[in-house]
């Protein structure tokens, strides 16, 4: 394994150096600003995030910042805050309180630099007719004059950050994996865009950038994470990351902050004092499609 790794690295670095030379940059001194071409060549030969060294990651983060500056004229900060020890994230959602306002969806889109096209919403809120749990009867595009509509109840669905994620199993190139704090992430620079993960996911939680995301400079959230909300390119997969850029710093995810009814409870499953632990221990919680066997970390419950 070690040999493979180093020979691959050697090959890659050789190619990068060669291409940089061919591109006209005679031995690039560190101070010189990188051109867009040099950057895209370097991104092309970039390794999988999981096996990068610290130095490589540093370079990669700087490259992401430069790319966003070039493409949108915006200065962003791209970090790679690691998982915090003794933290495993979980989410619980109170269906009695959810009124279908879709505030979480809006907040998610702007927090996470999602393209402003309909399909790129990482939370779906389904309007379900009273008296059924059959998702095939749901309405994804409800446009009620007033929510809640008296005939419906509402079911918000996003990535459940499964413990046995079908998506991770499916990916042919290990572009997606589960982090130590339970968040399932994607390396957007490694994803080949085959969409097999989205075929495998039972919660329809993965969304593809069919074109370059439709994102205006003034809409960009400059606080980003490499595995989270940094602006994506065309042809790669994305998903909910429990707002990795916020939650790893102890903040709440944007969807919970935005929820006007207090239906959402996010927290650390390993902390016995946390609200989510209280809910799991005292409410009659359930998980959606548990029979799919992916072990979600997302629970639903009713107040009464």
């Amino acid at each position: 394994m070690v040999d493979n790794r180093s020979s691959r690295r050697g090959f890659l670095q050789g190619t990068v150096a060669l291409t940089a030379l061919l591109a006209g940059g005679c031995s690039s001194s560190k101070e010189q600003p990188k051109t867009a071409f040099e950057d895209s060549v370097a991104t092309f030969f970039q390794d999988n995030y999981q096996v990068m060294t610290k130095d490589e990651i540093k370079e990669v983060l700087a490259r992401v910042e430069r790319r966003v500056k070039r493409e949108y004229g915006v200065d962003i900060k791209c970090e790679n805050t690691p998982p915090v020890a003794d933290v495993a994230f979980g989410y619980a959602l109170n269906l009695s309180k959810c009124k279908g306002t879709r505030r979480c969806v809006e907040a998610c889109v702007s927090e996470n630099n999602c393209g402003r096209n309909h399909s790129l919403e990482n939370i779906r809120v389904l309007a379900m007719p009273h008296g059924t749990m059959d998702l095939n009867k749901s309405d994804h595009y409800y446009d009620h004059e007033q929510v809640p509509n008296s005939n419906d109840w509402y079911l918000p669905i996003q990535c459940h950050q499964c413990d046995e994620p079908a998506c991770v199993q499916a990916c042919p190139v290990e572009a997606t994996w589960k982090e130590k704090d339970g968040i399932v992430v994607i390396d957007y620079d490694w994803c080949i865009g085959c969409r097999y993960c989205s075929v495998a996911c039972p919660y329809w939680a993965r969304h593809f950038n069919w074109s370059k995301p439709n994102l205006q400079p003034d809409e960009i959230n400059p606080k980003t994470h490499y595995l989270g909300n940094r602006p994506r390119e065309a042809g790669v997969m994305e998903k909910c990351t429990f707002c990795i850029q916020k939650t790893r710093k102890g903040e709440l995810p944007a969807c919970q902050e935005a929820c006007p009814t207090g239906a959402r409870v996010f927290g650390n499953l390993l902390d016995p004092q946390s609200e989510i632990r209280y809910i799991l221990e005292n409410k009659n919680v359930f998980r959606l499609k548990e029979e799919q066997g992916t072990q979600p970390n997302f629970w639903y419950f009713y107040d009464v």
Binding site: C194, R195, A234, G235
Partner: peptide, 10 residues
Amino acid sequence: LGQPLRFWHA
């Protein structure tokens, strides 16, 4: 593929 040039990842 969305990123055909990255086929070498496989």
